[in-house]
């Protein structure tokens, strides 16, 4: 199997928009993500007929309708299965999966696990708004303990799943995190994800203005952002704070991180090929800053590549008649 890369440098972001009216709530973070994806498509020169957006169910899942590419709005939680089929049928297609914290980690948690483990060459974008938006605001698997919602009126007593920690646990070879409002960073992250061969998993913190407004304010708020986010860039020290005056290092004698002054000599340098480090970064919770950027990238053979490689090897019984008449068959002579 040889995959040819053809690009279309003539297209602008608006050329990737379909003629459909976008129907998210005014102010929803999804608009910014749509804009970022369209910009990334234009920057990458994606050919529209070779690009496929696949979604499950939820607010995020409306995404394919708004793209001028091929699109499939499919079964709740099952976009990874359909996307896998599309990619296997034609590995030259550029296949994206759009999902949310409900679709991808609740009803579709099993599918997400297996598509990441198999390492199918898909760009998987998970919109995390920590709530079920489409069904009007029930708590989701990423909702934090104490979240009050119509289905948890006394506050959630469940422990949330971390999307990036889940992806790493499932064996994903590319795991990144960004934020709807962080346009430049988001576009760059999407482009990196696209370049990665194999399953790339991008979690986007997305504000649901109607049912979970400002749930990420402690990370994204202008005032707090410098202290609440640490940008992971390969080969660069993990520094944060208004003047990059703080850093992360391994707490001596442990396998845990701690915050130190940037001047401390042993601030960790981000190594995106280091899975244990990625796991530590993905799991950071306040008082630590939330890690943004490419937490982990370590390419390996992708599933569809191996499928085609296996099929390319000639086998003994490739003709159906020979196969059906092999082994324990006999002929009844009248």
């Amino acid at each position: 199997m040889t995959v040819t890369t053809i690009t279309d440098a003539q297209l602008a972001p608006k050329d990737y928009a379909s003629d459909q009216e976008v129907r998210w709530c005014p102010g929803c973070g999804d608009y910014a993500i749509l804009k970022a994806v369209q910009k990334a498509c234009a920057d990458l020169g994606l050919v529209r007929e070779r690009t496929v957006f696949v979604s499950g169910i939820g607010c995020a899942a409306r995404f394919p309708y708004y793209m001028s590419t091929y699109g499939f709005h499919t079964v709740h939680g099952r976009a990874p299965a359909i996307a896998t089929g599309i990619k296997l049928a034609n590995p030259e297609l550029d296949v994206w999966v759009l999902t949310g914290d409900g679709d991808g980690l609740s009803i579709g948690g099993n599918h997400m696990l297996h598509v990441l483990r198999r390492n199918v060459d898909l760009n998987i974008i998970l919109f995390n708004n920590e709530i079920y938006g489409l069904t009007k605001g029930q708590y989701s698997p990423t909702s934090r303990r104490g979240t009050r919602s119509p289905s948890t009126p006394l506050g959630s007593i469940e422990n949330p799943v971390s999307a990036c920690a889940f992806a790493l646990g499932a064996g994903a070879r590319f795991v990144a995190r960004s934020i709807d409002t962080l346009q430049a960073h988001l576009i760059a992250t999407l482009k990196r994800a696209h370049t990665h061969r194999g399953a790339s998993f991008v979690e986007i913190l997305q504000n649901c203005v109607v049912f979970n407004d400002a749930v990420f304010e402690h990370i994204t708020g202008k005032e707090v952002a410098p202290d609440a986010q640490v940008l992971a860039e390969h080969g660069k020290p993990l520094l944060f704070g208004k003047n990059k005056e703080k850093g992360l290092r391994l707490k001596p004698g442990t396998l845990a991180l701690e915050i130190v002054a940037a001047t401390a000599g042993d601030v960790l340098v981000h190594d995106e090929t280091n899975r244990p480090l990625a796991q530590l970064l993905a799991a950071l919770e306040p008082p630590f800053p939330a890690a943004m950027g490419v937490l982990y990238c370590s390419p390996a053979a992708s599933y569809e590549r191996d499928v085609y490689a296996q099929q390319a090897v000639p086998k003994g019984n490739s003709d159906l008649d020979a196969l059906l008449n092999s082994e324990r068959t006999w002929e009844v002579v009248p």
Binding site: S18, Q20, R48, E49, R50, V52, I57, P64, Y65, M67, S68, T69, Y70, G71, F72, H73, T74, V75, I86, A89, N90, E92, L93
Partner: peptide, 23 residues
Amino acid sequence: RPGTPQLEHRIGGLERDYDSGHI
């Protein structure tokens, strides 16, 4: 088949207009 030039379209489980196919 996805990959066919100029036939790009979107399909899905929401109800569609009989003629145009729009939601």
